[in-house]
Design a protein around this nucleic acid. Structure first.
Lengths: 216, 216
DNA sequence: TAGATTGTTAATCGATTAACAATC
DNA sequence: TAGATTGTTAATCGATTAACAATC
């Protein structure tokens, strides 16, 4: 197998969004002790076409072996590196409400190497409390504290009113990735990557599909 | 303006996923007292092309007026109906962990008419506790209780191990919509609509884009 | 009326699928 | 070797964008 050559023409969103699916699915296969798989078999279990699977992988290198298929363990390693899972990430949570609390306790993130190192809020009443063993600090300390702690990512879960103020403070720090849970189209300065989770949008899509599935 | 004729050829996911964006954005415009808008102006503020906006709306009817544009209020009403917001929905939460608690308290869902009416868990220790004023009940009571309460939707937020058992129980009830927060590819019987939220997938996509935005 | 803007058809672009030579 | 399966090019499909006649 040729080593990940990272062609990187310009890989489409569609491809990138499938990478985590591959990663998760291949890990499931491995834990069922399946150590080798063809695109055809993988197609059957993951639900993408074999053609698409081969196309997807080929964006990043030649991971397979003609006439043999793919080594599951190697493939997990390769895709993990492409995604960026060959390291840990330090996380700050901004907004210590119910959602912030849930994310601080969310094991599936920690298991992937995303470790919460700080929690911040503007509400004086909350400061000093602990969530998941971490003390809630004031947003006044945010910029200096995240620099000290070398934080990589913010999980943004303030309420709607607090968002833009929080973003301003985050922009003052050296953080360049925001995982945004506020139902707002965030405006951030260049160089900051934003992944928006808009649960309301998803719920409304579900609502639409409920109606249509009924009818036919 | 012609009334929503509901052509319903076969509307693509891409279009449906934009509907909540329109709905949210138009409400923002209305609260800024903008009562009339052209596809061109809307394009500038929402970020889709004017052409796409007109195409999208035309899947559902003729909502505009030649030479004038669209009436914001009417458009909100129309899109709301298409999404299915002209009614309330009764929700049951399955899994009373941190995430279930956050969702029970999430005002943005309630504001759209999705009202939590029951919370269920298998953990005996939690049963009888209250979240957001609602008593946690045993999953043993689920089927009869959701029928009694006329529940429409389940927010599924058990841990990974509990998922399939929970799904079996849900399938016994008359519920046909699941908003799934478990990082698992759910298998459900036909007729049940599933909207999957996989936060890990989103976090991994963010991780990928962090790397690539750095490099260039 | 003249200008603006829709609804809709046609053109373009991009992503998915099919096909197949290369080769393990 | 024969069978299997990749990597990759070509064909197809679907979604987005452009263009423009109709008309308010």
């Amino acid at each position: 197998m040729k080593r990940s050559t990272m062609k990187k023409e310009n890989i489409s969103q569609a491809v990138i969004r499938r990478l985590p699916r591959y990663y998760r699915h291949l890990n499931d296969l491995l834990s069922n002790n399946i150590r080798r798989i063809s695109s055809k078999e993988l197609s059957r279990s993951i639900g993408f076409t074999a053609s698409q699977i081969r196309q997807d992988f080929n964006h990043f290198g030649e991971f397979g072996q003609t006439g043999y298929g793919y080594n599951v363990e190697d493939l997990i390693q390769e895709i993990g590196e492409i995604i960026g899972l060959n390291r840990d990430y330090k996380v700050a949570i901004v907004g210590a409400g119910h959602l912030g609390t849930a994310l601080a306790n969310y094991q599936n993130f920690q298991n992937m190497g995303f470790v919460v190192k700080g929690i911040y809020d503007i509400d004086e009443a909350k400061i000093g409390d602990h969530i998941s063993g971490i003390e809630i600090q004031s947003m006044d300390e945010f910029v200096s504290d995240v620099r000290k702690k070398k934080i990589d990512i913010v999980y943004l879960c303030t309420n709607k009113n607090g968002v833009q103020q929080a973003v301003s403070i985050i922009e003052e720090s050296n953080i360049n990735a925001i995982f945004n849970f506020c139902p707002v189209d965030l405006k951030v300065k260049e160089g900051i990557v934003v992944e928006n989770i808009n649960l309301v949008d998803n719920l409304l899509a579900l609502s639409y599909y409920m109606k249509t599935s009924h009818k036919q």
